[in-house]
Design a protein around this nucleic acid. Structure first.
Lengths: 190, 190, 190, 190
DNA sequence: ATATAACCGAGACGGTACGTCACGTCTTCAC
DNA sequence: GTGAAGACGTGACGTACCGTCTCGGTTATAT
């Protein structure tokens, strides 16, 4: 029976406080300007308590992600049977999030972390963007659209959609009316 | 009478030395771990000489980009009349660059800068990726493929291609045989 | 009905272990570099067990002193009737202790504690150096030496002897042949 | 021709500021409770500026000593021809300094440093206490007092006097009327 | 030709944040 | 209630870089 040592147990309150402080500061001031001292101070926690449980700034952010504190929209692709409509709905939701100053800042922070931290980067496509659900939805749509014949490169289509989103965020290009539709058209065809 | 100040002129040697040192350090140790003091030391240059001419770390990197020191592949999309083949060729070249450890590291650094620095971010799609040439090529191909009818969302197609590239780089997904073809198929159709 | 509380009694083993660990670490690494965590770890004891019984680091050292763990020489001044010989014998013993690297280090630690901690400082002359026995011996020698007439400033003579010892230890001056004799001559006269 | 490098020169203002802050804090709060961060803050100076020029806390104090900022009494033994009177005068001056709360605190700090730092300890007897002048004065007095015959152990007499002073300071024994005289009598005889 | 001014290298300066160590308090479980 | 273990908030440690500034030395005009 492992892990039966006595002694105090990790403080869940401190953990939550740190994660919440991280999200707040990330939204307020961006990824640089985010310091561990700042997190600890805002969380009302000793610096050592942070270092005891997380090896790096990016790992805190990774945990925020897993907890769903960073992307407070549900990223699952809907399934009404109409793949065009579903993708458009899904993209519109995401575009809506990226349209807010705060959402865009947080998402860019996320990309900065991904660029820096291998673990976050590797998990970006699947865990973060839930691309899995996108792939699944696309698979189930095979045959229902002319551009989705048997053997269509589903993963690459998913990459293209998510990647376009990422690129827009990095490029600070404002979202406009009809962008979601146009993007869907670009990859699924007219 | 403009520009009648006296004194010596900006040292081109110092400038080159700084840019080169930046590229070297970026490839060696990544974007974080890149310090201005480190650049100056490696370049054999005083810190002030850096600060005199560049306002920030990211602006040095931006200049490296413009000088073509960072992405030593020519990014222009070829034009043989066959849009599929041209895109595949272009993507294969880029994939080749991102397949090298050094190229992937530099490109990720670039994305980190873009996530952080508004100017670099805004220029990412056009200046960095030369998406303009991609758009132009796609425009000229309208009508030559079933998925590129009149009024096709060319910009979004370009976004999708470049974005997929970016996403792959961030996600550290290794490139495999046929990836370029599949990606082209994903956006241009079968 | 005094002392009828329940529960186990203070562990003598823990107490001894802590005191011994303190002496060891003091001799090994000096007064600074001595930490309570280090003592507890070396003693195989919880930190709280230390804090439960001692208010401060210096009080542990004070207890080591009282237990005779720090100055393992008997400091009582002998009494053969010949005050010169007795003082010389006593000083030679002490010099011998201070000549060892370990003894000198421990004694300096003691002085550092005395400089810092009022209680230890106040007890230094009497409890630590047993100056009381020195005074007594000097008192009993009054009249037996030309420099010890009736009314001789016995306390000051004791101070002078002990003080000279302390000074030598602080000044890291090595002891040489005949030093004990010369010091006795200095205060008792030729 | 050594040391001809260009560039900024060490700031004398910063140096003075640091030394002065050290003295002030030492007198205010004692040797422990003295932190380098505290010194830097009080001096209005970056921490690195302290670390650039001094390897340790004790070395700052040592420099304060050399600058005469710590012991603001002149420690030279006077020479009127009457050795008893001269020693008494000298001791009275020192006792006066040690009688003030601040003087006693600073002097104890000094002893704590000496106990810890080899360099300061080694210099304690001579540089700090100017025992050299005491020895000289005693040498010149040989033959003028019955206890100072030819061949008297002058160094040991000096040790005894200075040591008694040190011991009193460590033991927190208050100075009383006639103490200086009694101490002189103890080592020079009646 | 000579003064003036901007360049260059070097690096000291006041700062901020880093990641670590130890403090003294506390909480948990076993005895 | 005591003891081993160790998490907690706190604060100082010594280091790395930040961006600004000050040096002595070196060009290049502008007088």
């Amino acid at each position: 029976m492992p892990d039966t040592r006595s002694g105090p147990v990790r403080s869940e309150a401190a953990r939550q406080s740190i994660l919440q402080a991280t999200v707040t500061l990330l939204a307020e001031r961006g990824y640089d300007n985010l310091t561990i001292e700042g997190i600890a101070a805002r969380a009302g926690v000793g610096k050592q308590t942070v270092y005891r449980w997380w090896p790096s700034k990016s790992s805190i952010i990774a945990e925020c992600l897993v907890e769903g504190l960073l992307l407070p929209v549900h990223l699952r692709v809907p399934d009404t049977g109409d793949i065009r409509r579903d993708l458009t709905t899904w993209l519109t939701t995401l575009f809506g999030y990226l349209q807010t100053e705060q959402g865009a800042t947080i998402f860019r922070s996320l990309l900065a972390v991904a660029a820096t931290d291998e673990a976050v980067g590797s998990g970006l496509r699947d865990s973060v963007m839930h691309t899995q659900s996108l792939s699944t939805r696309l698979h189930s749509a095979i045959g229902t659209a002319p551009n989705l014949p048997e053997g269509a490169p589903v993963e690459e289509i998913a990459d293209a959609l998510v990647g376009a989103l990422v690129l827009r965020n990095l490029a600070r290009r404002p979202i406009e009316e009809g962008d979601a539709e146009r993007l869907v058209e670009a990859v699924i065809g007219p």
